[in-house]
Nucleic acid binder design. Structure first.
Lengths: 324, 324
DNA sequence: TTGTAAGCGTTATCAA
DNA sequence: TTGATAACGCTTACAA
């Protein structure tokens, strides 16, 4: 691996001049610049990221913390953010959690150690210690999809409105009972469930005279069967993730019950795999690309030192299917 | 961010001693060590990865190049490798391609720039230029699932054997025509298709007196319908990925054709989502964890300077379903 | 337009 | 058991 020092020797000039040439700085003679670049290319010079970062104090790496790489919801986010970052000369470092809130701290330590320039994440922990922790990291942060505290920039979705829209569809389809399925709600108190609770509030506010059940336990599959088979109402599930909805549909199919004949069901996320599921699951899609665009814009501003703690609330979309 | 220099001042000692204390080196008085560690903790000292890497010459980062983050096949690999690496004090950096073979070079440049200690990847390009390129990177490499050249360590799967097993199942089920579906085969000459071609060979060797069709074009969906509806044989698809199999099943369902009544079908990869698909897709599973274990072991040996270019060939598993 | 030299925060080799 | 000090490869004042 050839270094600037060696290049300087080869070109009979100083390392400063080599640096000017390689980084297209203005204060350099055009001929010497071309000459140096030529020599650099011939010798396969590659800038040394580590040395450069140590000198400049920044890595041009952005961290994205992913709750669960197995959740297809993140596919699109990762792919799109990666593209946008490359365009802007940054690269992406994925912080992979194992699903537990404690692992969020482990991933933060890793990203802090790696000196990433900024982090986009879905805040999962809760409490003052968490806030203190996030602040002492001294890393620009943008919170995605799950509001935690107004001291951090946030990019998310207007939940109550899209929920109201979904509930309206459910009512119009003649259902008399709504079952809100969101097992993670059982972690109330120990995890940040802002978004899931917003959705629940949205349901409560718009439910009118329909009956409401909330399934927030681990055995939601079993419970959902009991509810539908024992109830004399026309029941419709509203699930906080397509994953839960698919689990229910699969389980119900084993009992020969399919939507919308025997029950209704709506998911969340519009994951790619739905195209293979019949009947087509009615779901709600997040504007992933817009979310990422805003989050990235916000983060880059912070990295440039422009402290603009803002809040972007975008709109989700109702995706009609065949299950209500 | 407090540094070793500042810690040294606080402790009335030299940076060398601080370093000895923080890294648990033997040549240091136990009391001073504890004292320094205490002060470091009080001041929230975090080692500076960048500076350390510059000094030691290694990053303790391993790169994994992923063809397509959207392909669920990689979920398991990423998750498992990440776990194993953490246990060993390494961290994982994902290199994300956009599906094109050219982007493989872009990702390699990125990982080389980041000075990762080693890379696990599925070699996708082909030709002597590729080989020259990989060698001049001077980064330990392990090739996964797709053999390219004996000069690189390889961890993969015995393809012909598992294919023979699948073909036998197909024959026993009474099919008289086998359709091997592997659209990427159309890139023959410009991409490394070793594994896909091994599978094809496996099919040819074990097919006996069944008819054989190979679908290696982009319009394989259309072609597959034509084949099944025009043929007077009992046709069974063998797809080089569950994704292709699901695409075919979904398309067929629209024409009211389902396996195993109207045709047979077998996939590859045993992706998680199959549990939601009915009838259950018969498929073939790679021993992902074993693959990664071997690949990692091999890579770490190379990083330690032990040049052991070896070849590990593992066994895949036939996963019976309801589609043949 | 060019060169000199002082960092950046560690590690590691000596010598004490 | 400790301390000085020279790397590591690059950037960036400042001086020429």
């Amino acid at each position: 691996m050839i270094t600037v020092k060696e290049l300087a020797k080869l070109c009979n000039c100083s390392v400063a001049t080599v640096n000017r040439a390689l980084n297209d700085r203005p204060d350099i003679n055009n001929q010497t610049k071309e000459r140096i670049k030529q020599v650099a290319k011939e010798h396969g010079y590659r800038p040394h990221f580590i040395a450069r970062s140590l000198a400049t104090g920044n890595t041009n790496i952005i961290g994205l913390i992913v709750l669960d790489i197995k959740n297809p919801f993140f596919e699109h986010i990762i792919d799109y953010l990666n593209q946008r970052l490359l365009e802007r000369g940054y690269s992406l470092h994925l912080g992979i959690m194992d699903g537990s809130p404690e692992s969020e701290y482990r991933v933060f330590e890793q990203l802090a150690y790696m000196k990433v320039d900024g982090i986009i994440h879905v805040p999962l922990n809760v409490g003052d210690a968490y806030k203190t922790y996030l602040k002492q990291l001294h890393i620009p942060l943008v919170h995605l999809c799950n509001w935690y505290d107004d001291e951090f920039p946030f990019v998310g979705v207007e939940e109550s409105q899209i929920i109201a829209e979904a509930v309206q569809h459910i009512q119009q389809a003649g259902y008399t009972e709504l079952i809100y399925v969101s097992p993670p709600l059982r972690y109330k108190g120990s995890r940040n469930l802002y978004t899931l609770e917003e959705r629940l509030k949205g349901v409560q506010d718009s439910i009118g005279d329909m009956k409401l059940h909330v399934l927030d336990t681990k055995d939601y599959l079993q419970k959902s069967i009991e509810l539908v088979s024992q109830s004399h109402e026309r029941s419709c599930f509203l699930c906080s993730s397509d994953i839960f909805a698919l689990d229910i549909m699969t389980q119900m199919r084993a009992l020969d019950m399919t939507p919308p004949k025997d029950y209704g069901i709506i998911g969340f996320d519009n994951i790619t795999f739905l195209k293979h599921i019949s009947p087509r699951l009615t779901t709600i899609a997040y504007p992933v690309e817009e979310l990422i665009d805003h989050a990235l814009e916000e983060l880059l501003l912070m990295i440039q030192g422009k402290q603009c703690i803002s809040k972007h609330i975008l709109k989700a979309h109702f995706i009609p299917g065949e299950t209500i």
